[in-house]
Simulated assay, not measured.
Amino acid sequence: MKKHYLLLLFTFTTAFLSAQNNNPVFPGWYADPEGIIFDKEYWIFPTYSAPFDEQVFLDAFSSPDLVTWKKHERIIDTAEVSWAKRAMWAPSIIEKDEKYYLFFGANDIQSDKELGGIGVAISDTPGGPYKDLLGKPLIGKFHNGAQPIDQFVFHDKDGQYYLIYGGWKHCNIAKLNDDFTGFIPFEDGVVFKEITPEGYVEGPFMFIRNGKYYFMWSEGGWTGPNYSVAYAIADSPLGPFKRIDKILQQDPNIATGAGHHSVIKVPNEDTYYIVYHRRPLTETDGNSRETCIDIMKFDDNGHILPVKITEEGVGANPLQ
């Protein structure tokens, strides 16, 4: 009888665990998530999703396996950044020379007459605390029509670091200098090159796979149900980028507003995860956004297959 009971308990427990829903990956309203791997840990750096005047700090989350997450509260806030008052958005992070550089947007400026834009902060650990590196914005003006928000720092295979950014349907790329305090002009003397593809709205992201540059971005309005992600492929981080297809969007049976994403590649595997935010079907407030993870796959031609957004999310995948 005891053996039968244990077998039944094991079967029930296994079925329960396999049916668990891992999306959203952690509680709370968080958006614009950047996923990355540091020191055999997964990390997510999101926007705190709230009214702009309440967005005065950034949290981070770490996990050994994509399932169990630890919250790192207030890794930076406006008390540390003298010029930032509100709307701290869309963090992007990179490690260089054993330092961690956190790029962020602040103040949601609408013109060159306002103080704000893209800043950069530094820490000895990914979980902070971070200190403002410059005491002023790294980019505080509009260039090529791009609002200085939604920054992504990209490390190319030749060692060059780029900042790719932009809202208001314009995207720029610029070469960061060695200490991330400014930019290096391209050979033609231009500092900010526009690489805007068809359909681009905001939220750029770039990665390399099989020698090709995959450029991804968000389309639609962030408060609406049709927020989504599309992509292009080129031979250079400068493009030209011709839109191929939309690969992430709402599923009316699961959630709406699926967009503003990032991608995590597992080292030594051809395994890719897409980290993104979406709005539960029960929510109508534009700020009610949660962070989720699903698998991202490719076809034999290297094209990204449409992502199926799920409530199950992904299973545990500890880093070796």
Score class of each variant (00 low, 15 high):
114 E>G: 01
183 F>W: 02
318 P>S: 03
163 L>V: 09
13 T>F: 15
286 G>E: 11
259 G>N: 07
2 K>I: 09
312 E>M: 04
222 W>A: 07
296 M>S: 02
263 V>P: 01
278 R>I: 00
60 A>S: 14
274 I>L: 10
201 V>M: 14
246 K>Y: 07
151 Q>R: 00
18 S>W: 14
199 G>M: 14
274 I>N: 02
150 D>E: 10
206 M>H: 01
53 D>N: 13
227 Y>R: 07
115 L>M: 13
291 T>K: 04
179 D>S: 09
6 L>W: 11
62 S>D: 10
246 K>R: 15
44 I>P: 01
62 S>R: 11
75 I>E: 05
84 A>R: 04
93 I>N: 04
159 G>M: 12
90 A>F: 09
142 F>Y: 15
70 K>F: 08
235 D>P: 06
271 T>D: 00
72 H>G: 01
284 T>V: 14
105 G>K: 09
237 P>R: 10
256 T>Y: 15
120 V>H: 11
309 I>L: 11
7 L>S: 12
15 A>P: 00
209 R>F: 06
40 K>P: 00
46 P>N: 08
308 K>D: 11
190 V>L: 03
101 Y>I: 06
62 S>Q: 12
126 P>H: 08
34 E>Q: 14
132 D>N: 04
52 F>G: 00
35 G>N: 10
2 K>S: 02
106 A>G: 01
111 S>M: 10
302 G>V: 03
58 L>T: 02
197 P>W: 15
88 M>I: 14
98 E>G: 00
158 D>N: 14
69 W>Y: 08
98 E>F: 03
290 E>F: 01
68 T>W: 03
109 I>W: 12
254 I>R: 08
4 H>R: 14
143 H>P: 02
279 R>S: 06
266 V>I: 12
201 V>Y: 13
141 K>E: 15
39 D>Y: 08
175 K>P: 00
108 D>H: 13
22 N>R: 15
165 Y>W: 14
199 G>V: 13
49 S>T: 03
247 I>W: 07
223 T>Y: 13
146 A>P: 07
287 N>V: 01
315 G>N: 13
149 I>F: 05
154 F>G: 04
293 I>H: 04
306 P>F: 09
156 D>V: 02
213 Y>A: 03
302 G>A: 02
29 W>A: 10
136 K>G: 00
313 G>D: 12
251 D>A: 09
9 L>W: 10
276 Y>D: 05
190 V>K: 08
258 A>H: 10
167 G>P: 03
152 F>L: 05
68 T>P: 00
7 L>I: 15
202 E>Q: 05
99 K>E: 12
302 G>S: 05
90 A>S: 13
154 F>N: 05
128 G>W: 12
135 G>P: 04
304 I>K: 10
319 L>T: 01
18 S>D: 07
185 P>L: 09
203 G>S: 14
118 I>T: 01
20 Q>E: 13
313 G>W: 13
